[in-house]
Design a binder for these strands. Structure first.
Length: 474
DNA sequence: TTAGGGTTAG
C-alpha cells in the first residue's frame, strides 16, 4: 500500500520516534465515513440508506469502503451491495480497474457464493433492483471469470421483473467464451433469439475471437458465413479478428488473401492500422520480421500510417531476430512519415532491449537519447533506472539527475524513486539521499510503503535526524 | 458502452 511521502500534519517528533504510526495512518475523506456508518448498521435496506447519504462518490472513496468491508470480514455482502449500488449512481461509474479491485478484495473467484448471496439478500430484503444493477453483477461475474454464476444471474433477473437485454447476454456469452466453453456460448446465442433478442456484431465478434483463440478457424469461418448469409454487414473488427486467428495458426498466405478481400470490399471493412499491426505481429512471431516490412509497404500504399503500437511490434520482432540495425532503419522510416515521434520510437527500443536482457545496448540507446535531447518515456526511464538500481545505485542516481536536468517530466514509478532512496541509504550516500529526498518532495512522489521503515531506520542510525525530518516534514 | 493490435500496473 502506498503511504503519503510527506505528511505535514504530523509533528516531526512523533514521526521520528514512531514511524509505524505514521505508516498506519490513512487519509480519510468525509464521504467515506458517512457511507461507512451506514454499511456497518446492518440496515436491511442498505441501498435506500446509501442513497440518502448523498455524499460525493469517486473511485478512491469506493476503493476505501471496499477495503474496509473486506478487511472486517463481517461485511462482504454489504460491501458488494455498496459496490453494486455505487455502480448505478448517475454521477459515478466503475471502471474496469475498480471491478478488478472488487474481485480481488472479496476473492470472488474463489468464493462464487458471494454472488448468489447478494442476489438472495436482495430477495430477502425486498430490495429494488434494476437492469443496471444486474449489469454491475454480471460485470463482476465477468471479472471473476464465473460463467455459471453469470448464467444463474441472467435467469434470476426475471424474479426481479428485469428482462436481460443484448448487453446482458453478451456479457455472459463472453465469460463462457473466455473459458473456452463454446457449446454453452452457442446455446445462449440461440436462446437470445427465443426471447426476441438477436445476436449482434458484439456477440458475433466475441464468438469468432474465441473460436480463433481455440484454433477452431473452421468454426469461426462457418459463423462468418452464416452472418454473411443472413445479410448482416460485417465490419473491420470482425474481419480483423478472423484474420488474426488465421495468421495465428500459421496460415499467413490465407491471411494475406483475406487482407486483400478486405481492401476490395472497402467501406466499413477497410483495414485499419490495427489490422495491419496484428498482421505484422503474426509475421514477427514467426520470425519473419523482414517479410513483415512488405505489410508496412502495403499499409503505407493504402494511406494508413504506422503508429506507436506498430513500431513497438516491429521492434520486438526485429530484436528477437537480433536485427538491431534494421530496427534503427525502421525507426527512421516511420519517423519520416511524421506520425510517431523519435522519442517514442527510441523509448520503445530501450524497453524492448531491456526486456530481452540486452541491458548494455538498452543503456547505450538511452544515454544517446539524452545526449540528443530526445525525451525517454516513463516506462523506458523506470525500466532502465530499476535495472541500474539493482546494479549500482549511484549510476541510477546520476542518470536520474540527468533526466531532471534536461527537464524531461517523465512519469517515473514511485517504486523506482523509493528503491533508489533505499539503495542510497544502504550505501550511506547521505548527500545524494538528501538531494533525492528534495526532488521527491518537489515532485510530490510518495515513498513506497515497503521502503519507508528501512529508510527511516538507516537515516536515524546514521544520526541524520534532519534528513528524516526533511523527508517526512517537507 | 458488452467487440480488434503492444509494453507497465492500476
Amino acid at each position: 500500500m502506498l503511504v503519503p511521502f510527506v505528511s505535514r500534519s504530523l509533528s516531526s517528533s512523533l514521526r521520528t520516534k514512531n514511524p509505524s504510526f505514521f505508516l498506519a495512518t490513512r487519509a480519510v475523506t468525509n464521504p467515506v465515513e458517512k457511507y461507512w456508518t451506514h454499511l456497518q448498521s446492518n440496515d436491511p435496506n442498505i441501498e435506500k440508506a446509501l442513497t440518502r447519504v448523498g455524499a460525493k462518490l469517486d473511485s478512491s472513496c469506493v476503493k476505501e469502503l471496499l477495503t474496509r468491508c473486506s478487511c472486517t470480514n463481517k461485511h462482504p455482502t454489504s460491501g458488494l451491495r455498496f459496490f453494486i449500488w455505487a455502480g448505478i449512481q448517475r454521477e459515478y461509474r466503475h471502471n474496469s480497474h475498480m471491478y478488478n479491485i472488487a474481485c480481488k478484495l472479496f476473492n470472488i473467484n474463489q468464493n462464487p457464493n458471494l454472488i448468489t448471496d447478494v442476489i438472495d439478500a436482495y430477495t430477502l430484503d425486498n430490495s429494488v433492483v434494476n437492469l443496471k444493477s444486474f449489469k454491475v453483477v454480471l460485470n463482476l461475474c465477468k471479472e471473476a471469470k464465473l460463467p455459471n454464476e453469470g448464467l444463474w444471474v441472467l435467469k434470476k433477473m426475471q424474479d426481479f421483473n428485469c428482462k436481460p437485454d443484448t448487453t446482458a447476454y453478451n456479457l455472459v456469452i463472453r465469460v463462457f467464451c473466455e473459458k473456452g466453453k463454446m457449446d454453452e456460448a452457442l446455446m445462449l446465442m440461440q436462446e437470445m433469439s427465443l426471447s426476441n433478442l438477436y445476436p449482434d456484431m458484439v456477440t458475433f465478434i466475441t464468438m469468432v475471437k474465441s473460436f480463433c483463440d481455440l484454433g477452431r478457424i473452421q468454426d469461426a469461418s462457418k459463423l462468418f458465413k452464416i452472418v454473411k448469409q443472413q445479410g448482416c454487414s460485417l465490419n473491420v473488427i470482425a474481419y480483423s479478428t478472423l484474420l488474426d486467428g488465421i495468421c495465428k495458426v500459421g496460415d499467413l498466405e490465407k491471411g494475406l488473401n483475406l487482407l486483400d478481400e478486405m481492401n476490395k470490399k472497402g467501406g466499413s471493412c477497410t483495414p485499419t492500422v490495427v489490422t495491419y499491426t496484428s498482421m505484422i505481429r503474426n509475421f514477427c512471431e514467426k520470425k519473419k520480421s523482414m517479410e513483415a516490412l512488405t505489410i508496412l509497404d502495403r499499409m503505407e500504399n493504402n494511406g494508413c500510417l504506422a503508429n506507436r503500437v506498430t513500431v513497438t511490434t516491429f521492434i520486438n520482432g526485429l530484436i528477437t531476430e537480433n536485427r538491431i540495425d534494421e530496427a534503427y532503419k525502421l525507426i527512421d522510416r516511420v519517423v519520416n512519415k511524421g506520425n510517431v515521434s523519435k522519442g517514442e520510437c527510441y523509448s520503445s527500443l530501450v524497453v524492448t532491449l531491456l526486456r530481452f536482457g540486452k541491458d548494455e545496448d538498452g543503456e547505450k540507446v538511452f544515454r544517446k537519447m539524452l545526449s540528443n535531447g530526445l525525451k525517454p518515456d516513463g516506462l523506458a526511464c523506470s525500466m532502465l533506472l530499476k535495472k541500474m538500481c539493482l546494479k549500482e545505485v549511484m549510476d541510477a542516481f546520476e542518470v536520474c539527475n540527468e533526466i531532471e536536468k534536461l527537464g524531461f517530466v517523465s512519469s517515473i514509478d514511485s517504486e523506482i524513486y523509493s528503491m533508489m532512496m533505499d539503495g542510497l541509504c544502504r550505501k550511506g550516500c547521505l548527500m545524494e539521499a538528501s538531494k533525492l529526498a528534495r526532488l521527491m518532495i518537489e515532485k510530490g512522489v510518495r515513498l513506497n510503503g515497503s521502503y519507508s521503515e528501512s529508510v527511516v531506520e538507516y537515516l536515524n542510525n546514521a544520526g541524520e535526524m534532519e534528513l528524516v525530518s526533511r523527508i517526512f516534514g517537507g
